[in-house]
Computed example of a mutant assay.
Amino acid sequence: MLQAQAAPRAIWTWEPESYAMLQRESEADAAIAFLQQKGIQTVYLYADAYQGHNLIAEQPRLYGRLIQRLHRAGIKTYALLGSAYLHTERYVLPSHRKEALAMVQRIFDYNAQAAPEQRFDGINLDIEPHILPQWSSQRLALLAGFLDMSSAIMAARRQAGQTLPIGPAIPFWLDGIALEWQGKRKPASEHVQDVYDYVALMDYRDHALGPDGIVSHGADEIAYAKAIGRTVWLGVETLPNELKKVSFEHLREADMERELGLAQRSFEDNRAFGGFVIHHYSQYQRWLKSAK
């Protein structure tokens, strides 16, 4: 059961599920009912190309219809950008900068043309340079590329006259990599937080407390966010993983709720704590059915 005063929750919703919700009202009905049942107030809805189509450009009315329905149900909708399908980890490379900017510009253009009740409430980016094969030998250069891309995206937002919040998903261990960028040397996570409005920290552990827990891994990012007026959402995993501690998949829903409750109590008095993000929609549903 959810706590009576549970922290806000969001959920990553990837290509197949997002496109299904857009194209079939029955899928949207089921999704809205599920999100409301589980107390999820924000959905990160995929909004880029998939299987040869790009519905945000080709059929924007589908997004308008779904976002309006979600809003009526009290659910905010962020455009989820970045995917394995498009290999968007390459967008941190200068040779792919135009693709990164075109990706966000489509959202800016959509919002500029959409009715207020049909606009995205924000953007969540999932661009992960550590997936690239050259990460082991070029991680500082790739992180600098990520920050350059990020700075260009935020500049494009200003140029477009948009105000919707933008933030990336980042791994919790980014605070352990020091990086010099734009004349300042600090943890890579702090550079990222300086650029964006918020971060969704991939804080993937199956327990809240202790030196290798959700709270410990999120503490530095939340402390820095508080100092600079930003927000941190803590991401949790339900996909299977070879390292059991990474995911709640091997546990029950009650176990996850207990641990998230402990994490919430550690941060609930901190204005920089935004809530939790669950990875991801279809797997979360599968897990809930199998974990009973």
Rank of each mutant, 00 (worst) to 15 (best):
S247P: 09
A6M: 03
R72W: 07
A79P: 09
M202I: 07
H87M: 02
W12P: 05
L201N: 07
W173R: 12
G210A: 06
P8V: 08
I107Q: 05
P8H: 05
S189N: 01
R72A: 15
A200Q: 02
A155C: 00
P168H: 07
G218Y: 07
P8D: 06
P129M: 12
Y50F: 15
H96S: 12
E268R: 13
V43S: 04
P187Y: 07
E268D: 12
Y110C: 05
H217A: 06
A156P: 00
A73F: 12
F172L: 02
Q134H: 01
E237I: 08
L132Q: 12
L81D: 06
R158N: 13
Y78R: 07
A178T: 12
L147T: 10
G161T: 10
P16Y: 11
E58Q: 15
A112T: 05
E253H: 09
Q41N: 01
I107G: 03
E190Y: 13
A169P: 03
A57F: 00
Y85V: 04
A49C: 08
D48M: 06
D206T: 11
V246A: 09
A178G: 07
A272G: 07
A223R: 15
N241F: 13
Q105T: 13
Q182C: 01
W181P: 08
A223D: 14
S266K: 10
K226I: 03
M103C: 13
L251E: 06
H207P: 01
Q37V: 01
V43Q: 10
P187N: 08
M1P: 14
S95A: 12
L174K: 05
A112V: 04
S26D: 12
Q105F: 02
V277K: 00
V277I: 11
E259L: 07
H130Y: 15
R157S: 06
W12Y: 14
A225W: 02
R61Y: 09
A10V: 03
K38N: 10
A155Y: 01
A208V: 11
I75R: 13
T13E: 06
R286S: 11
S266N: 11
L81M: 12
D212R: 15
E237Q: 14
A115E: 13
R61G: 09
A225T: 05
Y44C: 15
Y46R: 08
F146C: 03
R90T: 09
G167D: 08
A144S: 15
T77L: 09
Q105N: 14
